[in-house]
Design a protein around this nucleic acid. Sequence first.
DNA 1: AAGGTGAGCAACCGCCTAGTA
DNA 2: GTACTAGGCGGTTGCTCACCT
Length: 334
Amino acid sequence: MGRSPCCDENGLKKGPWTQEEDEKLIDHIQKHGHGNWRALPKQAGLNRCGKSCRLRWTNYLRPDIKRGNFTEEEEETIINLHSLLGNKWSSIASNLPGRTDNEIKNYWNTHLRKKLLQMGIDPVTHRPRTDHLNVLAALPQLIAAANFNNLLNLNQNVQLDASTLAKAQLLHNMIQVLSTNNNKIPSSSPLTMQTNNNLFGQSSYLENQSLFGQPQNFSHIPGANQDEKMMVENQMIEQPLDSFSSLMQMDVQDDHNSLPLLVAASPEESNQSQMMIKNKDIVHRHDTNPSSSNSSFTQDHHQPWCDTIDDEAGDSYWKEIMEQTCSEPWPFPE
DNA sequence: AAGGTGAGCAACCGCCTAGTA
DNA sequence: GTACTAGGCGGTTGCTCACCT
């Protein structure tokens, strides 16, 4: 397939647009429309390539562009749609009147991404992060326990060093958290809330932000294809998502995922979710397999955690974790 | 005051796809 | 079916500016 060289012609200007160029472009489009972008620059008296003109118009000069800060509502919409559509910025933008895909993309990369990271949510998968779980907030206690172990002055042969003990305790804590979530505890119970608070440092982001509190109608998403629209709608119907806790409990039964599912994230995951929804798989699994044993869960679901920790088990990794939660210098005094 | 650094954002690049001859 | 064009998209770059040392 041949590809037309658009911007490699010699002598065409690149870089920031001047006010004069903007005026020329606006004037021409207002009078004649943009029609053929390739031919436009010549007709408008611009020394630019058509692609550059199109970008300038669609991203900046278009009269219906909304400028200024994003509202909270817009932020929520972006996060919602990104969790379902991934980096399909144009599809997301088509659901936000006056916003361009470029603007949304930039806003995501500079603001929303960081915001989610700070909340312990992976901006790519929209799942809780596994690298620096806030469950580590309990680490000072673990360190204290480790130091206490030193104070006991046990036999050198059986004495664990502080870091090893902390690692073991950390793993134990993670296992407890997961096991707790696997039980059928009402999502609103204090225990569950406490567990979630431990895991994510605060009440669920989704609960707090009401991101999924109200079912939204995405059937009008112009950029999304029919499958995507159906997926969004079905997801809202099948999974009211009224509480992150319930979602965690639901997903924790999924044999293939070791971590709680927020919402379908990547397109691949979205497709999987879509297939599951189509097959009524989620409902079926909950009806037919309501009590998958804790032991099998423990075995199947904890392995990835262990793998994760093994993968990152270098001293620097643990040091970083420890330093975030403990003012003690590293290594710990022995 | 000057230099360094990082964030934010406009613009570019390269690839993909649909349409057409 | 092939070759080509135009438009669109997502990723990346690089400029500007504010803040920090």
